[in-house]
Design a protein around this nucleic acid. Structure first.
Length: 584
RNA sequence: GCGCCGGUAGCUCAAUUGGAUAGAGCUUCUGACUUCGGAUCAGAUGGUUGCAGGUUCGAGUCCUGCCCGGCGCACCA
């Protein structure tokens, strides 16, 4: 893309003037205001600062070494030492024409593909998937899709909760009060009922609690009967997962649950003890600070009463059982050894930050030579009214299946009102796409680190930065092609004359830059913002530039612009996991 | 108490290595329709970026202190 050509040219020019400069900081970015130009670099000012040079003089020196006349008008030095670039319309036209002929859609594949493991979603067996799983699922899926499009090798792994203390109570309930008919009709509901009822009974009955514990011990020791029941619970749960992931369009390469790592846990603890990374404390096995980090950055220290005190990570409970840190360590080691990734990404809510800081720190000590990058991509909570956690009226967690149902039924009501002429089958399909898109977009468009307030009315609105608005923008473009019929020549020459055409063309060019930003910071909201802005710029073009009524050459050129815009919208939404429809 | 995160227009949010005059939507008000889909668009109103300092050519962004809110901090995950 053009900005990369300019960037490389600038880097080469800087290298001639300042051979020792760090080129990774010499970047070319879109201008914040078109009056300055189309692209700018502000890197020369910081380079000048480091070297105590006059920034404008440095800019002038770089300029003498710079030749971007193939793509740009005269380069300007402005402000405190910006270089401003203005694209030649001819370069724009050629770039768009090349994409229209079948090039990559305004992005470039990564020069050095990386292998990246992404851990996301992670629902629990025998429990309904609920609203708490949506953000991890949607974020992780979007990151996987975007990284893949850019040419990276992505391994998605669903670390389901198929092991743990809850199975004691579940097994006890299953054996005592399982309703087979209810299980057949609604397996998750029945398992949830068994757990809740047994759990409640255990609150007041110590004998029952002990029996639940015994069931858990039997399971952990490989008791045949309990294993059979446990496997059935997993299988029933997997059906639920498959159904919901099917609706959401999410796929995993692997589903290696917690239980997969059971055979490795003892070894993990033993190894960490042998190496002196972990030791016994109050009956548990713990990892303490090794003093290698400054106290402020050390996840195994906290300040209490003005003193740095231990903040250990437990890797084995005093009863000898492993806990989630143990499993996560075994999982991390397995992923590292199995896929040899450049990076492992965990998509979870922000409350687990300390856990992952400790987990990563332990792994670094355990495998000091491992080059793998470890990332915790965390997100904020979904809130209901009054900034309280999002719950149903009766205070229950909102089930994911019901959430999706409601999204679709609300969308159906809107579609039926707006476009009653469509058949019910068509309206249902449109409602499905709009309803699911609205939910996903509501999760992806805010900064992932902030909490957001769940609002049906906002997410399903056709105005503002919402999925329906973008889907509408797409449908409206497709409508032009339906009217145009088959008379569209795909490899049309593109001629940009009106300012709205040029603005749209320049916006299309930014797509790849945005995708890179998304994968660098793991922030899909950059893509959402971009698509919304693109839709806005397109509307400006749509209002000002008639397409079908234009004369032949202009018509073909504008049709090509429409086609490129619709493709970027569709591709962008697809990366967010959101479908489009031809009519809505 | 300590840590992490947040505090930006009346409301909900954005702001791409520190970069130029902090931007959208909603709301309110004013306009545009014999419409390539008005499910739209144009314009107006609206700001001491929580407070006070500091760093520098330049700070919503970095540093220090304080105020307010959410979350976390040894055997749940």
């Amino acid at each position: 893309m053009l900005h990369q050509f300019i960037e490389r040219a600038v880097q080469q020019a800087v290298a001639k003037v300042l051979p020792d400069a760090d080129m990774s900081s010499v970047l070319v970015r879109p201008c914040p205001d078109p009056k300055f130009g189309d692209y700018q670099t502000n890197a020369l000012m910081s380079l000048a600062k480091e070297r105590k040079l006059n920034p404008c003089q440095l800019a002038a020196d770089v300029l003498t070494q710079l030749n971007v006349s193939e793509w740009c008008e005269k380069v300007e030095i402005a402000g405190a030492g910006f270089l401003n670039f203005r694209l030649k319309v001819s370069a724009l036209e050629q770039t768009l024409a090349a994409v229209a002929r079948g090039g990559h859609l305004f992005f470039e594949k990564a020069a050095e593909p990386r292998t990246i493991v992404i851990d996301f979603s992670s629902p629990n067996v025998a429990k309904p998937m609920h609203v708490g799983h949506i953000r991890s699922t949607v974020l992780g899926d979007c990151l996987a899709r975007t990284l893949r499009l850019l040419g990276h090798r992505v391994v998605t792994d669903n670390h389901i909760g198929d092991w743990g203390t809850q199975f004691g109570k579940l097994l006890l309930g299953w054996k005592g009060q399982l309703d087979r008919a209810a299980l057949a009709a609604d397996p998750i509901g029945e398992m949830e009922r068994l757990y809740k009822s047994t759990n409640a009974a255990c609150e007041t009955d110590a004998d029952l609690l002990e029996r639940a514990r015994q069931e858990l011990v039997k399971l952990q020791n490989g008791d045949a009967e309990n294993l059979v029941i446990w496997r059935e619970m997993i299988e029933l749960s997997q059906h639920q997962f498959d159904t919901l992931y099917g609706r959401l369009g999410v796929e995993f390469d692997f589903t290696l649950g917690e239980s997969f790592y059971n055979p490795r846990l003892k070894q993990v603890v033993a190894e960490l003890r042998e190496r002196g990374i972990a030791r016994e404390s109050e009956g548990a096995i713990c990892v303490f600070s090794d003093g290698s980090l400054p106290p402020k950055e050390d996840p195994f220290l906290k300040q209490q009463d003005g003193q740095w005190t231990p903040n250990p990570c437990l890797i084995q409970k005093s009863d000898g059982a492993a806990n989630y840190a143990t499993t996560d360590l075994a999982t991390l080691a397995y992923r590292f050894e199995t896929w040899q990734p450049a990076e492992i990404v965990y998509v979870t809510d922000g409350r687990q930050q300390l856990h992952f800081r400790q987990l990563f720190a332990i792994f670094r000590r355990w495998h000091p030579d491992a080059k793998v990058k470890l990332s915790h991509v965390w997100f904020g909570s979904i809130l209901g009214e009054n900034n309280t956690p999002f719950k149903t009226r009766s205070g229950e967690t909102v089930k994911l299946a019901e959430l999706l149902d409601e999204a679709e039924s609300r969308a159906l009501a809107i579609v039926s009102e707006k476009n009653p002429n469509l058949s019910e089958t068509e309206r249902r399909e449109i409602a499905r796409v709009i309803g699911l898109g609205a939910i996903k977009y509501a999760d992806l468009s805010p900064n992932r680190q902030s909490d957001y307030v769940f609002s049906w009315d906002k997410m399903l609105s056709f105005a503002g930065n919402t999925a329906p608005y973008l889907q509408y923008a797409y449908a409206r473009i497709r409508s032009i092609f339906r009217k145009a019929g088959a008379g569209m020549s795909p490899a049309a020459e593109i001629r940009l004359i009106a300012t709205e055409e040029i603005t749209l063309a320049k916006k299309l060019l930014h797509f790849g830059l945005v995708l890179e930003a998304v994968t660098e910071d793991y922030r899909p909201n950059y893509l959402c913002n971009y698509l919304y802005e693109l839709a806005g710029v397109f509307t400006g073009f749509y209002e000002a530039c008639p397409v079908l009524k234009a004369a032949d050459a202009e018509r073909a050129s504008r049709l090509a612009l429409c086609d490129l815009t619709s493709r970027v919208l569709q591709q962008g939404l697809a990366l967010l996991g959101i479908e489009t429809v031809e009519q809505m």
